[in-house]
Design a protein around this nucleic acid. Structure first.
Lengths: 154, 154
DNA sequence: GACATATAGATGCAATTGCATTAATGTCAA
DNA sequence: TTGACATTAATGCAATTGCATCTATATGTC
């Protein structure tokens, strides 16, 4: 009986987790699109590269940071490259690989997207949650997601 | 400064929410697929119909319950129908609409999927969270997601 | 009844995702 | 060095999603 109750609670978390995530992502994507910005996935790549200063990253590294499937990243990079936001260059030392560099345009895009994204996230995630709940939530979600790194950065 | 800190926390929740949800969904989908079961989306429809006993539902109703886009639901129902898990019948009283009925096969599928899904969710969502955290999480996620209904049912 | 407008559901088409496989190196042991 | 095996990245193809639009029926107004 106590077991039954627990599984019900877990299922409730399951449903709410998916719905909350879905809702928030849709809203933020919509905000970006409404202002003619590219999707969140593009921002993630641009941010990851921005964080490295001028250092170039290899797709494999991005893959690990962003938790994107290899074939999806490959094509995401195609799109970013076509939009002149990144550049692919050969990787000396490893003939298989390549280095991904942010272009000036790419860096500018990341900077322009940042405040939009920040405000959208603040609005749709934190709506009217008190500081305490935010912290609690971060802690509990961290427990589900496993090891994660911090985020943000302009 | 206090503001800065808050937004950082909110962004952390944003990142973790997406990652936790993503991870959990992928794991559960993988579990289903590994046992040759259809995806979660199918289960959601089957469960919704099962809950109604023998009552048929209209796509519009499902749409609201499941929060799926109209055109996606239309095609999801195509697939379920092709798999003989549901049946579409005319809707008397409204010539535009239709009624969706669970077939015996559909009901059986829902029943077979239930324990698999339950265990997978228990494993991937609740891994090693104490009861208290589960409840906290449900409460907090509910605050983000807005009004939600309870779940589960075999 | 005739018309304007709203609602239910389907569908063509483009973009994205997932899956399986491939090509090209790299690594390491014999 | 060579051959077996691992790693990096790309790609053909099918399935799914998003978007815009379309058809058919309903509803309300005159």
């Amino acid at each position: 009986m106590a077991e039954e109750k627990r599984i019900d609670k877990v299922l409730q978390v399951w449903v709410r987790l998916i719905r909350a995530s879905d809702k928030v992502v849709r809203n933020v994507e919509a905000t970006l699109k409404a202002k003619d910005f590219p999707p969140i996935a593009w921002y993630d790549v641009l941010l990851e590269l921005s964080r490295e200063g001028g250092r170039k990253l290899r797709p494999v590294e991005l893959e690990k940071e962003l938790l994107v499937a290899q074939y999806n990243l490959s094509r995401l990079l195609d799109r970013l490259e076509a939009a002149h936001l990144i550049e692919r260059t050969a990787c000396q030392g490893d003939g298989r690989g390549q280095m991904i560099a942010l272009t000036a345009e790419g860096r500018a895009m990341q900077k322009r997207m940042w405040p939009i994204l920040r405000d959208a996230v603040e609005e749709h995630v934190a709506a009217n949650l008190p500081e305490r709940d935010i912290e609690q939530l971060a802690k509990l979600l961290g427990a589900i997601g496993g090891g994660l790194r911090p985020n943000s950065c302009s």
